[in-house]
Design a protein around this nucleic acid. Sequence first.
DNA 1: TGCTAAACTGAAAGTGCTTTCAAAAAAAAC
DNA 2: GTTTTTTTTGAAAGCACTTTCAGTTTAGCA
Lengths: 336, 336
Amino acid sequence: MPSKKKSPTIYDVAKLSGVSISTISRVLNATDKVNAETHKRVMKAIDQLGFVPRAEARARAMQSTARIGVLTPFFTAPSFVQRLRGVASTLSKANYELVIYPVDSMAHLQGYISSIPLMRNIDGLIIMSLSLGDQDAQRLSNNGMETVLIEYSHPQLNSIVIDDQHGGQLVAEHFIKKGYKSFGFIGDIEPPEKFAIHPVKSRLTGFKQTLQEAGFSLPKAYIRSSPYTQKESRQAALELLSLPKPPTAIFAASDIQALSLMKVARQLNINIPNNLAVVGFDDIDVAEHVDLTTIRQHLDESGRLAAEILLTRIGEHDRPLQHINLPLNLIERMTT
Amino acid sequence: MPSKKKSPTIYDVAKLSGVSISTISRVLNATDKVNAETHKRVMKAIDQLGFVPRAEARARAMQSTARIGVLTPFFTAPSFVQRLRGVASTLSKANYELVIYPVDSMAHLQGYISSIPLMRNIDGLIIMSLSLGDQDAQRLSNNGMETVLIEYSHPQLNSIVIDDQHGGQLVAEHFIKKGYKSFGFIGDIEPPEKFAIHPVKSRLTGFKQTLQEAGFSLPKAYIRSSPYTQKESRQAALELLSLPKPPTAIFAASDIQALSLMKVARQLNINIPNNLAVVGFDDIDVAEHVDLTTIRQHLDESGRLAAEILLTRIGEHDRPLQHINLPLNLIERMTT
DNA sequence: TGCTAAACTGAAAGTGCTTTCAAAAAAAAC
DNA sequence: GTTTTTTTTGAAAGCACTTTCAGTTTAGCA
């Protein structure tokens, strides 16, 4: 049997019920102006076709939109996902739709930023881990697009950040307290792409500074900059552990990289934590599974918070901007 | 001077820049087809007026919204995320927006299913790991909403599935080949929620059957049904490994549960793979990091495929339905 | 029964944009 | 210096409705 093609339009309804489209429109909008008899006939046709006026749907779904967008790089990394999860759960409760704009190039970002406040009909925006130029921030702000930045901050927009440097400090303190003497660092210090944020430098700074203040050193040779990818992280880890006198305590700037490090250590038969201590950063879900000591940054919570801020500001546009600094804490597990 | 009138339309821009509206539209959509000179003039006019194309009018003219939706259960599990990633990358390339509808209850699902085709604010729908009643499938199909099901299939809609039973078989064969003699199983056999799919039973069936055909047995006591959560998986693992004569080879129905199992083994000082072999299912990203032997089901690929099918069907509505069965293969790493 | 006001209804003119088609202009080929 | 392509551009035809304006009916009332 022939399947129905396009969804029915007002014309189809008109034809089926034998009246003009104007009448259909009236039935839909100003019921009172239509004869009861006709009204019934039209309704029957509408039901029969399963007709839904698109404009109305659009108005319902778009004008007062109930939809918020999230700009996120790649959203491949577990940390993004966990944040997204926080966002999603809050939004879902409030009956908001979640539109995701994966960013994978600078041009992409620019395109979104310039078109989002305009064309896209969302009534709020969350920007995760992406740096934003003054002009763009200005534009968003001017256009009245409620925005929350995560992992980046700008005076004109709401933001949620963590103190990465403090995170590095926590790690150093932990290592010292545990009695380790020789330290290393793995992380993608070089910004992987211009458009993405790289808080790794701050983590390193905090780590290094604290060590130095305590009288320890972090030689250049023990600092490996490696991109986020598995292969390269592993390469960096291998190099670090193959040094004549490898460090005994390594801080990996992300849990994923810590995992790579652990994998290499396993292959080299280096026992963790006896011969090597590892601390990660993020506390992603799997960190617990593999018993990784790490810095917890409450990823879910940051997402949840971002969504909540957005929602309240959408409700009351004149609420003051919020700049939130989320606390960090070290979760000690089995790798130190 | 901030005396704003009506928001400018494409006509205003046309007048100001001295070209026709078609050209404006072209500048906005197909930049390459416009003379550089003209392009610049138009852009200037656009900026000057602060012109913003109205999404509604645009969608109407294009008869499409360039937006597709994904229905997914609590998108917390890594496997969902990886699939989503595949979807996102494909969609992003094709310039489609991705709207996520997290489903966390039966009512939720129902609500979405019945309103989505009506609202018509998406061009296509991907439904991940959710079972769909005949009526709902019918409704989607009738309403001409292009849909792709993942991990579930229905004759009236496109679908992408894997052969879970075969997966179980692969695991059993691998164990046997490796010389293991005593087997166990951990997985959430009981459907966690009515609305979610539970392919775990099939995995178990394939596993068990193959073992039996090879002359081995899988006693009831060695089959632990446990929900997906960490805590309960761990409990199940603990019970299994604490038996007087624990199995030496365990098949975990998901990688996450395999991780829990590995964690418990570590705590009990059971060496993997010498004293215990573990095989997971999914091959999520971290599986490689922790060197878990597992069944790869190409999560990314399934997402990508789903999106591609959707896109081509949106382009040509009369393309035949596709029912794809994705191949499974065992990736041997260090846990067996 | 005749006449007017009220109640309905349809034709057609927007709405703001995309896209096709063909003309005009510019560039390339002869 | 023509002729043929190719590139640009504008006119006009949608898209799916809403609304205005008039024409028809119908109802109300002498």
